[in-house]
Amino acid sequence: MENVIYEVSEGVAVITLNRPQAKNAIDAATAQAIEAAMDRLEADPSVRVGILTGAGGTFCSGMDLKAFLRGEVVVTPRRGFAGIASCPPPVPLIAAIEGYSVAGGFEIALSCDLIVASRAAQFGLPEVRRGLVATAGGMLRIPGLLPPNVAHELVLTGRMASAQEMAGYGLVNRLVDEGEALQGAKALAAEIAANGPVAVRTSKAVMRQSLHWSQDEMFERQDEAARPVFTSEDAKEGARAFAEKRAPRWSGR
């Protein structure tokens, strides 16, 4: 059985963590398979959006502690924990979450750009309860995504939080009924995939990278990144399609 399943349809890649017997926990083989999926996603110009989900009604329960005790390394050299946490792909990535998104599983979700979650989904960073710390992006990303006191509470207590609570703080983009997270993520992906792929990738890059830009340089660096978009074939096609009152035919150039 493959630890990770990669499927593409209509410009959307669905990457499924496929260890339901282990609640999709990350062992060495799974981390390497996720990295390979991210590399494939990044290299394929026909893929405009990626969806990351889990089989068997659970998104991911984090690091496989049995694998950890066996001495397995679940961090890859290029992309970090689970083959994604420290270096997500430039393609927009949606987490489709059913059940538990805990510890490293929550950190994988935080590596994505958008989250669609079942109303029954649960989130948490319980590392401190095991004498560990959330070093796969939890401590780094949560403070910028949630109100500071809420972020501190989640990390320092290790408590679980419902999808409704996380949606209330804006961390979850769309709440859906149980069992419909993947369907909801596909609907959101279709909205993104309908847009100009050059513009979408550049927009993601600017939003991610600008967090580290100073006020003095941010417009200059934004313009540097955006300039090729305005001279692209897609920009010309978008204008022509608008004038001709038809759907654009994007080339990704």
Rank of each mutant, 00 (worst) to 15 (best):
Q32V: 10
A95E: 01
L110A: 10
G184Y: 00
P148R: 13
A194L: 08
S61L: 14
R19D: 03
A37E: 01
R208T: 15
P88M: 04
K66R: 14
L52P: 00
G196P: 08
Q222K: 05
R227S: 10
L93I: 03
R253Q: 15
A82E: 08
R227P: 02
K23Y: 15
P228A: 11
V47P: 08
A247R: 14
V198R: 13
P89L: 04
A163C: 09
G83D: 10
P92I: 02
E98A: 09
R79N: 07
V200P: 00
L17Y: 03
E165G: 00
A120T: 15
V200H: 02
L171P: 06
L171C: 08
G71P: 07
R119G: 15
M38N: 02
L132H: 12
F123N: 02
R130T: 12
L17S: 07
A67C: 07
L52Q: 01
H212N: 11
P248T: 10
V8D: 10
P88K: 05
A43N: 13
A151C: 11
E180T: 12
M1E: 13
A103Q: 06
G131M: 09
A241V: 05
L154K: 01
V150F: 05
V102M: 14
F106I: 03
R240V: 12
R227Q: 14
G54K: 08
A43P: 10
P92E: 01
L182D: 04
A25N: 13
A239N: 07
A95V: 01
L125A: 05
T231Y: 13
R240H: 13
G99K: 09
V229T: 06
R40C: 07
E233F: 04
S210R: 15
G138M: 09
T202N: 07
M160S: 13
I108P: 01
A226L: 15
A29F: 04
Q183D: 15
V12L: 00
G184K: 02
G170Y: 06
A85G: 12
M218G: 00
G238W: 07
E2I: 11
V49A: 07
E220T: 13
A13D: 04
G11N: 06
P148N: 11
H152G: 09
D39P: 03
W250V: 09
R78H: 12
D177G: 15
A243C: 11
D177V: 12
Q21D: 15
E7K: 14
A185K: 02
V229D: 08
A22T: 12
G252N: 14
Q122C: 11
R78N: 14
C112Q: 02
A120P: 05
I51S: 08
G83Q: 08
Y169A: 09
I108Y: 04
G168R: 00
D64H: 06
L132S: 12
A190I: 04
P126E: 11
P20H: 14
A243Q: 13
G179R: 11
R48P: 04
A241E: 03
L171W: 12
V116F: 00
A136G: 11
E35M: 08
A13W: 02
E180I: 06
F219P: 00
G71V: 07
Q32G: 13
S46G: 14
A95C: 06
A96M: 09
A194V: 05
F242T: 11
